[in-house]
């Protein structure tokens, strides 16, 4: 069962955190089609967040076609996300590359900066998920 971890100080809206963590679990294959998401009641009992926040996140996931609500039964995963489950060759390659970068003396921030730069080169700089997080960011105006 997926457990959400809510970070109150991340500046990312709580429902966006739930959406992101669900997508992360789908990407890594921790959640597969047919799996049931925890009920709103289970999530709020564990996290003490407002039930409507969970429902809002689930509606967003449903709108994106990732999950479906079945009346009286719960919310179920409809399809996985991405092509990079935790055991894929791509994962192994990235793992090997990261080990090499570390051996070459790069620290965590160096690797993150490099990786982000390459990401931005190959993909449109803002994908929907990021936009959602940015819009609801509560940091300094920038």
């Amino acid at each position: 069962m997926l457990e959400y971890r809510i970070d109150r100080h991340s500046g990312v809206a709580t429902y966006v955190q739930i959406v992101q963590q669900t997508k992360q679990a789908l990407r890594l294959g921790h959640l597969e089609p047919g799996d049931k998401l925890p009920t709103a009641r289970e999530v709020v009992e564990a996290t003490a967040i407002n039930p409507n926040t969970v429902l809002k996140a689930y509606r967003e996931l449903e709108r994106e076609g990732l999950v479906e609500a079945r009346r009286g039964l719960g919310t179920f995963v409809r399809r996985g996300l991405g092509a990079a489950p935790a055991d894929s060759p791509l994962n192994a390659e990235l793992d090997g590359w990261t080990a090499k970068a570390r051996a070459a003396g790069l620290d965590r921030d160096d690797v993150a900066a490099l990786f982000t730069a390459v990401l931005d080169k190959h993909f449109a700089p803002q994908f929907p998920e990021r936009t959602a997080a940015t819009q609801h960011s509560q940091g300094e105006p920038s």
Binding site: E45, T47, I49, N50, P51
Partner: peptide, 13 residues
Amino acid sequence: HELMGVLMSQAAQ
């Protein structure tokens, strides 16, 4: 945290 969770679960249910 626990009792707030109980309250939220009451509201959800």
